[in-house]
Write a protein that binds this DNA or RNA. Sequence first.
RNA 1: GCGCCUGUAGCUCAGAUGGAUAGAGCAUUAGCCUCCGGAGCUAAGGGUCGGGGGUUCGAACCCCUCCAGGCGCGCCA
Length: 701
Amino acid sequence: MYLEITTKLRDALAKHIRVKYGVQLHIVLERPPKIELGEAASPVCFELAKRLKKAPRQIAQEIQNGLPAVPGITRLEVAGAGYLNAYFDRGVFWEAAWDEAARAIPQGLKPGEVVPTDVGPKGPTTKREAAAPAKTGKDRQKWLSHKIIVEHTSINPNKAAHIGHVRNAVLGDTMARTLRQAGRNVQVQNYIDNTGVQVADVVIGFLHMEKRTPVTVKTLAMEPRFDYYCWDLYAKATQFLAEDKEQATKLRGETLRAIEEGRGEEAEVGQVVADAVVSCHLQTMARLGIFYELLARESEILHSHFWDLAFAKLKDLGVIQFVRYGKMAGCWIMPWKEENSGINTAGTESAEGTETTEDENTQDKIIVRSNGTVTYVGKDIAYQLWKFGLLGKDFHYAKWPNTPEGEEVWATTSGANDPKAPPFGAAAKTVYNVIDARQAYLQDVVAQGLRGLGHAEAAENSIHLSYEIVALTPRCAAEMGYELTPEEAKKPYVEVSGRKGFGVKADDLIDQLEAAAHAEVQQRHADMSVEEQKRTAHAIAVGALRFFLLKFTRNAIIAFDFADALSFEGETGPYCQYAVVRIRGIRRKGAEAGTTRVAMAPETAQKLLAGGEGNGLWEVLLAAGSLDYAVDATIGAREPAFVAKYAFQLAQAFNNFYHKHHILSEADEQKHAFLLGLTELVETQLVRALHLMGIDAPEKM
RNA sequence: GCGCCUGUAGCUCAGAUGGAUAGAGCAUUAGCCUCCGGAGCUAAGGGUCGGGGGUUCGAACCCCUCCAGGCGCGCCA
């Protein structure tokens, strides 16, 4: 609601200023520091003052008098040195907020996912008129239908998921849910690098260290938590390979090649391992409410000759060059220039593969190795082209066999195409790649490749949703039995290492959170059935973990500590969930007591929200009505942390209100009805906000 | 060496697109259960926004410079 009104205000101001002063300006709107100063303010007159050579206050005065009425806004005032402060019509806002909440279809749900039914009542008991619907029109509809791909998780399928992977998945999942909430057409994909060195190392572990056969590996892979087994084996294999560098290079090379070409025991074991571990990851993520539409596997990028096609294009357009002499002799490289506005120099000459690059530039990125194999970047360019529908080729698809209960997931396949598969190959307009910040350079190279191929728009719409790593505090690392060097002990954090097998596994952490939450629930609700206790504890655990990973902005390094992550107090998921539980408690209690709830008179809300005495209630209502604003900011800044911030602030506003007003015992019937209505509005909005983060609020906790 | 990121309260972090008296949580201290659930609420203390220049009516935010820390720059991904 807040967004709707401020958008109208912004448009009105822009139009008025254009007409009256002949100046085209971007109108900045901000939230005033205090509620007494109104709900939205613009410093635009300061900017105008410069251009018009007039005092800002005078201009503000003129605009205040001249601006036509804006729906939802009662008045404008000039404040300070020349601010224009807008005051909302609180009664209208109340009606409109209710209307918006009531017609909100819980989006961000995947097909088959159950809509939470208990999200508040039907609406206010009075209705004036529906708020002006958001701009409809064909253009908007078309824009909304544009396909967006969100690719996240993308864990190497050779070990269990750890806390850092969970951050990736939670960010991606929340972004996807938020985009869907905004009405966008989103498809979630998970990239599976099933042919890389990481899988090869585990294959070496099975075949060379443990001397297993494909059959025994297959049996082992059916055991629960096979990913944990691989976690340890991967660490052992890394150590084993580090002992003899020469042999390691040879062994890795041979294994990798066999896997890529899909031949021999290596390929067989590689596939078994990768598929089994992916299924484990799906289970882990399902515990957190994270699902995927498509698993895009690297093996199919190779087998379907995606790369060959992209390679030809890259050569034809001279985006990559063949190196004849020097360190990189025999490689195909993409030149990396300081001003890489595009690659247009010497391109055509080198297309034949006969040109040399004279000066060795270490920044140049190798795309094809001298042995003819393609690097990750090359494959990623091909893959990215496919996402935008620019490759002219599509995968075959089949249902993934081992999905979490009740879920349907598709995967690319080298086998026959299932004609019932959704149109995954449809071109996307925007692609979000959730990848950690360390890979920024590689993502730049991929984008540069797209630009070089003449797809500047695709490069522009390839969004690297980068985020910083999750590390451990030294104390936490020590607790886990990691031996710290003196330097490490002094640092604020210690990096985890999959290769060393050092890190907090996702399932272990969720288990711990569930246990801690369960103990708490047991203590508070001894009468609750064990099953319900567990369900509740699960919701709390998920709430705590997801919120914890979301409350930091993307480029903050999270120094993980069990004490922080297991906390249920303060700025946490459970705090927000608790606010919802309180509201439901009130509603339950009210229903039990059979208190009658009278219809609200049309002027009740207006009256109770008015003036200084109404400010407390108004702030709660304003917070509840600002979800659209939070969603907009989240998408605009690509910052899922904003959702967490919003949910926390709303919960906080409610808790404050809760302690000031005793709702059920309110003697004034009209006020009672209003307080109850406000409470229910908060519930609806808070539940929606939590849902964007994949957090459910239990009935009791 | 080149590129990117970070530096805000004792600690962990918000302050998107430059705006009014820089905000939360944790920790500390003092209060609040005859009343809808205390995973809560109220209040207090705590800041040279790393230092220094500059641009601007206005800078935590933009520019320059220095300092400190991190990451990337591999025929790994």
